[in-house]
Computed example of a mutant assay.
Amino acid sequence: MALHPEGVFTGGPLFQLVAVVCRDGEPPEREVARLRRVLGAAYWEEPWRAVLQPLASQADYLAVTFSEEFFAGCPEYARRAWLGAAGQLSVPGFLGELAGLLRASDRAGPAGYDTVPLARWEAVARFPLLRSLDTWAYDGEHDSFEAALRARIDGEHPCCDEELVPFVAQAQTALHLCAASSHFRERFLSFDESVTPRALRVVVDMGNAHLAAHHR
């Protein structure tokens, strides 16, 4: 069986973080704070999650075992992301700095949206089911958002635990955060014009009504 150890530099939360730092040019500590918020939204047993302390240990390990020869064998897009994120630092030096930022963010807890604004990538990562809510609502098959959502719910039934439950949960979470933080609301609603408070309320109300009627 073929081995692909270069995956440590090309995938997973650590690489996604590095790619964002390289692409968007914001300070790494801000992106780490956003990653902390995204990972903190996963409420299952911690050993099964990619939480910050294990990610910090992964960064430390990659730093102390770093090999230019091995790194040269990674895909170009991955090398470009790591080198771009590292800036003036070497890749091992950047990994050490990143490990420190991950541990500091874990100790500090989630940052407020007033101090670290919501980023588009963060919204996409945390609310993947809330993208382009109207693309399947107004494609000529349905005359309203409600009718399209009903068709979607009926299409998912009876396997509603796979998508409808997280769909409703993401919509309710977004509504809660919009009500709790004007900073979150302004940014979140600016990323996708189809994601409106009304649309989110329809998802929650119709989704919960279906779940109450058919899955209790």
Rank of each mutant, 00 (worst) to 15 (best):
L14K: 09
L14S: 06
F15G: 02
F15H: 14
Q16F: 05
Q16G: 15
Q16P: 08
Q16R: 12
L17F: 09
L17H: 11
L17K: 02
L17V: 06
V18K: 15
V18C: 08
V18P: 06
V18W: 04
V18T: 09
A19W: 09
A19P: 00
A19T: 10
A19D: 08
V20N: 04
V21L: 06
V21T: 07
V21N: 02
V21P: 03
V21E: 10
C22P: 03
C22R: 15
C22F: 15
R23C: 11
R23P: 11
R23W: 13
D24S: 02
D24A: 10
D24P: 01
G25Y: 04
G25N: 09
G25Q: 07
E26G: 14
E26I: 03
E26W: 12
E26C: 06
E26V: 08
E26R: 14
P27I: 02
P27E: 09
P27G: 01
P28W: 13
P28Q: 10
P28C: 11
P28H: 01
E29G: 08
E29L: 07
R30D: 04
R30V: 13
E31A: 15
E31M: 06
E31C: 08
E31L: 14
V32R: 04
V32E: 11
V32N: 07
V32I: 03
V32H: 07
A33H: 05
A33T: 04
A33V: 05
A33N: 06
A33S: 13
A33D: 14
R34C: 10
R34H: 06
R34V: 01
R34F: 07
L35H: 01
L35C: 05
R36Y: 00
R36L: 01
R36P: 02
R37S: 01
V38F: 06
V38D: 03
V38E: 09
V38C: 04
V38K: 01
V38H: 05
L39V: 05
L39P: 00
L39R: 13
L39S: 13
G40E: 06
G40N: 03
G40D: 06
G40F: 04
G40Q: 01
A41N: 03
A41D: 08
A41V: 01
A42H: 10
A42L: 07
A42P: 00
A42W: 13
Y43N: 14
Y43F: 10
W44S: 08
W44R: 09
W44P: 05
E45T: 12
E45D: 15
E45M: 12
E45N: 06
E46D: 15
E46H: 05
P47G: 04
P47Y: 10
P47A: 12
W48F: 15
W48Y: 15
R49D: 15
R49E: 14
R49N: 13
R49Q: 14
R49C: 10
R49L: 13
A50H: 11
A50G: 11
